[in-house]
Every structure is written in C-alpha cells, then in structure tokens.
Design a protein around this nucleic acid. Structure first.
Length: 611
DNA sequence: CTTAGGG
DNA sequence: CCCTAAG
C-alpha cells in the first residue's frame, strides 16, 4: 500500500512512507481505502472512489439541488482519530458539521473502531469486502495523492462542473498505488469498476431511441424520483450510468424467479450493486432489516439483454445505494431473498468454522463415476469433477474463490482436497436454497466472521476462527489460504529453529505454534526457506530496504535476518548432516551428471531435463 | 504422517 | 502457498 504523507496534498510530491513505518502503517491504513467527499455541505457524502465517485457526483450534478441521492449509509460521523487522516485528507470538504468524516478503519488497534455501531461495521465490511473481491481496487487517499487537488478543492463541488472529478480520476490513476506483493493489479482497475461494459454497446443505442418522456420514466424508476431536466443527453447519461452500474445480467432471471420482477415490489427490496461482495449484504440485512435483500453479484461482463435487465433492475437502483435506507423502516422479519451465488471458497472456509462445529461426519458426495483407486486418482477425479460439474466453477479460478450456498458442511482450516466434491454435489441440489433459517444462520455467521476479522486479523492468529481469512494485501485478489507472517511468528520460527534445529518442523509447530493452527509444518519449512533466502540476499545487497519495499512484504528486521543467518550456519538447511563436506568433489552432487542429482541428504532430485 | 524440494 | 515424492 501506499502511504502518502499528509502534506502531499499541499503541493509536495507524493511520498511513500518510510520503510520502517511501512509495516505498521500498512496495518493501520490498509483497510482504509476510502474517503468521503462531501457534497454540498449537507450530510451526504460520497466515497471518493475514483470513477464511482466521479459518476455519482456526476449524477448529482443535476441542476436542481438533489440531496437525498446519496445513501445515508455512507454518511458516517466517525470519530476516527487516526493521525494520518487529518482534515487535509479531505480537500473536498465543504464546511459543515463534522469535519472528520471517513470510514472507520479496520484497525484492530483502534478499539473505538471495533466498538463502532453496526453501521460502521457494515461499512468496514463493505470496504473490506470490496477489496477482497478485487473488484474495486482503488488508490488510497486519492485526495492526498493528487497534489493538484488541493487547489481544485476550492471549487464548488455541488456545481455541475465535473471536470474536477474527471481529472481527479485520471490523474490519480497514473499514480501507482499498490500494496503488498501485487504490482500488476492496478491494470485491472478500469474493467473492474464498471463491470458491465457490455452495456455500453447496446444501451446507448436503445437510449437513443427513447423519447424524453421515456427517459424521464427510466430516470424516475431508476433513481426513484423525477427530474425536470429536459436535456435528453443529460438524461441519457444518468440512465446509462444507472445501467452500467447496476445491470445485472444473470440477476434478471433470479429476480423473476423470485417473483420480484415487478417494479411495484421494490418497496421491499434493497438493491445492492453487484460489486458489493457478500459480506456487505449481511450487515445490511441486519442493519436495515430489509424484508428482501437482493444481491447482484458476479463479474457480469456478459452482454445480452441489457434492456431486460435494465427494466428489471431499474426500480431497484434508486434504493440501491443512493437513497437513505431507513433503519426503522422495516423492522419486519428478515426475509432475505438473495440471489443465489456460490460462496467463494474462502467463504466456505470461513463459514465452516462456525457451522461445522456440530457436524462431525461430512456427508460424502456420491461420486457416480470413476471408482477411486489410488489417492492420486481420487485427486484428479476431484479436479475434473470440480471443473466440469458446474458452470459456476469455470468462472473462477480454483484459487479465486467459489461461492456455495450455505449449510454446506465444512471442515476446519484448509480445504481438504476432496472438499470440493461434496461441494459441487451440493450445488446441484441447492438451486433452491435451503430454509430461511439456514440462510439467516449463514448470514449471521458471515457477519460475525466478518466483523471478527476486523479485529482479529492482525492478532497473530491467536484468536481466529476465521483463520484463513487474509487481509486484502494483494489488492483484493488474495483469496488463498494466505496468512501473512507476522514478525512475532517469524521470531517464533527462528526461535524454534534455534532450539530444535532445522527440519523439526512438526516439533516447532507443536511447541511454538500451537496457538496458530493454520501454520502447518510445511508452512514453517517454507517460511524458513524464505527467511534463508532473505537473509542471504540481505548480505549481498545492503539496499534491501528498497527491495523489500518493492516486494511490499513485511520488512524483516535486520536482527532477525542476522539470526537466521547464524542459524543457517549452525543448522544447514536440508539438515545437519553432521560433518558436511564443504561441497567439493566429495559431494555427491557433482557426481551425477545425468540430470539427476542428489542432494546432500542423499535425496534424489530430478532436474528439469528439457527433452 | 512428516520432511524435502519443486512449482 | 500448493503439490508431490520419499521415507
């Protein structure tokens, strides 16, 4: 992540945080990726989300003053006191009540954040979720990143002049703001934000054919209000915007299935833009007690039947994210009617922690073909089954995540190889989702898990049931069972190695990592390997600081590396083979020239022989 | 099941 | 991190 000095917006160059601050800051800030831009000094805020902000603001640019367009949800009077987020961060601020408006951070160190109202949690989760999904991958502190903006900030934000926001967006985009290991993600940004690019192909044309009145209708149903603007172009833009951001192709059918297609029903619905990941919906339902929750999800880039979709959804859009969702409005039963979406694999893992407590024996999915012979066969079978079984699967890379209806049975920790078996079979039967109770339960679990994540994720794994959850380091794509190695973990590992020697991973794991079950002995071993590499590299290159910054991994203190280095001498890696001949002719390695070599420990190592 | 090593 | 091979 990028940490921008506060003064950056005052005309300085954007600076990256110093390396030493990096770790800590990344911890603190990295969830905080959104800031609000206030509009018109009223209580509405919009997130400064580049394109989205741009678009929203654009919408607001209607000549009449439009106030309730923006969701109240977005309006948070957070007391966040993070020093890095001074007012300077909000160049767009127009004098109004509470000068500090931003989203609470997922900073587990900040107790006050954790104790925020559910509202905040919702936003937190949303932000986190968005990032996890990798859908919104956005610059941080946009305002600070773009020095030029400080001047712009004097503009009238309520005005129709949108050039500001546009420039804003484009300028910022050129500033690469990356986090952690992934440097290439940024390039996905454009696609990610406006997911339904397809609409741009067809929507304009059909909009072109609409009369002003029709456009008005569309506008009304889309945003839930009228406009007296007669400018066709303007109307088209708005409607188009609505379409682009809320078209949900696959969703249309589910809507119909749910019998919710009629526009009149929208009272009971909360439309959640598809970009919003599941985690958000849960808090939403909780918060708003909505009687129906419609979730549009998926990276719908399909292009078809834009019109149908639009018709189906337009009425929801108004509620979507831009209108105040009234808390008290519907205290009625939580009848979540949400679109079925296969949970991500990670979601499964997370939820599994909660759900499976009681379920000991996993129901084995019936495998109708390919009797399992060897474990290896079983594996490959699983894999094919996995891919071919359901279309859904094909849309996600094996690691990116698969969402699956709730009430699956889950296992704890990492998925066993065959977990996808039952998974896919489950999907077969779950077109019609299970009971309401199930859903609510799942919802609750998710919410709990998500909020716990907020607190726990940095806690060195001591307290987690959501063990596999990760921070959004990798700009949201990080869906692996990836757990950042904390410094203390590293130190524990080093300590363990020094005590028990290299190779005693299980020992070390048992004795030092008993609290963090998610670290397997293999993990320890891998990490050690990495540490060795790091310590070696460090010797060569004193300027490791920059390298580390580049790789964005947590900087391993010199002292620790030095220790590793020492240990690597005391306990040579593969294993202390007692007298280790200082690799010369006596070494078996050099004795083999046929592409197969033997490591010091005598293990045969196949080398890649290019055939 | 654990460890080593490659990917 | 994941997978696999070897013990």
């Amino acid at each position: 992540m990028l940490e921008v000095e506060n003064d950056a917006s005052k005309g300085g160059t954007a600076k990256y945080g110093e390396k030493d601050n990096w770790a800590e800051q990344s911890i603190g800030v990295d969830q905080l990726t959104f800031k609000l831009v206030q509009v018109e000094g009223d209580r509405t805020c919009i997130p400064a989300l580049e394109d989205e902000a741009m678009e929203v603001e654009h919408l607001l640019a209607e000549p009449q003053s439009e106030e309730d367009l923006i969701v109240d949800v977005m309006h948070l009077n957070s007391e966040n006191t993070n020093p890095r987020l001074g007012n300077e961060d909000f160049p767009c601020e127009v004098g109004c009540g509470n000068p500090k408006k931003d989203f609470g951070m997922l900073d587990s160190d900040d107790a006050h954040v954790v104790k925020q109202e559910p509202k905040y949690e919702y936003v937190e989760n949303m932000m986190q979720g968005i990032e996890e999904e990798g859908i919104l991958h956005l610059p941080y502190s946009l305002s600070s990143v773009c020095p030029d903006l400080s001047e712009s900030s004097e503009m009238d934000y309520a005005s129709e002049n949108m050039s500001f926001m546009r420039n804003f967006g484009s300028e910022c985009q050129t500033i690469s703001i990356e986090r952690e290991e992934d440097a290439g993600e940024m390039s996905h940004l454009p696609n990610a934000i406006i997911p339904c690019e397809g609409t741009s192909d067809c929507a304009p044309s059909f909009l072109d054919n609409m009369s002003t009145d029709e456009l008005h209708d569309a506008f009304r149903s889309m945003f839930g209000r009228d406009t007296c603007v007669m400018d066709k172009q303007w109307l088209k833009h708005r409607v188009l915007f609505g379409l682009q951001n809320h078209t949900e192709v696959g969703y249309a059918s589910s809507l119909l299935e749910c019998g919710l297609s009629s526009v009149e029903n929208d009272d009971d619905m909360i439309w959640i833009p598809k970009n919003v990941p599941e985690e958000i919906c849960i808090p939403l339902t909780n918060i708003f007690g909505s009687s129906a929750l419609v979730v549009g999800t998926g990276a719908g880039k399909e292009r078809h039947s834009c019109e149908d979709v639009a018709v189906a959804n337009i009425s929801k859009v108004g509620k979507a994210g831009f209108e105040p969702l009234n808390l008290e409005e519907r205290p009625s039963a939580l009848t979540a009617t949400k679109r079925l979406r296969k949970p991500t694999r990670r979601y499964i893992e997370e939820t599994s922690e909660m759900i499976s407590r009681g379920c000991n024996e996993r129901a084995k999915a019936p495998i109708d073909s390919a009797p399992i012979v060897s474990s290896r066969d079983k594996l490959s079978h699983v894999k094919t089954d996995n891919r071919g079984g359901q279309v859904v699967y094909q849309e996600y890379s094996p690691r990116s995540g698969i969402q699956v209806p709730n009430s699956l049975q889950f296992r704890r920790g990492r998925p066993k190889k065959n977990s996808s078996l039952m998974l896919s079979s489950f999907i077969q039967g779950s077109k019609i989702l299970g009971s309401k109770e199930d859903m609510i339960f799942s919802v609750a679990c998710q919410a709990t898990c998500a909020s716990r994540l907020a607190r726990d994720e940095l806690q060195d794994g001591l307290s987690d049931d959501c063990a596999t959850a990760t921070r959004n380091e990798k700009s949201g794509i990080r869906r692996k069972h990836h757990r950042l190695w904390t410094l203390s973990e590293v130190m524990k590992l080093v300590e363990g190695v020094s005590r028990y020697g290299v190779g005693r991973w299980t020992e070390i794991k048992r004795l030092l990592f008993s609290s963090s079950a998610y670290r397997t002995s293999v993990d320890l071993k891998d990490k050690w390997r990495n540490l060795l590499r790091a310590s070696g590299a460090q010797l060569h290159n004193r300027n490791q600081v920059e390298l580390q910054k580049k790789h964005m991994s947590l900087p391993i203190p010199q002292s620790v590396l030095r220790r590793v280095k020492e240990l690597s001498i005391i306990h040579p890696y593969p294993r202390e083979r007692k007298s280790r001949p200082p690799l010369v002719s006596s070494s078996p390695v050099s004795a083999c020239s046929n592409g197969i070599s033997i490591s010091r420990s005598g293990r045969i190592v196949h080398k890649q022989i290019s055939t």
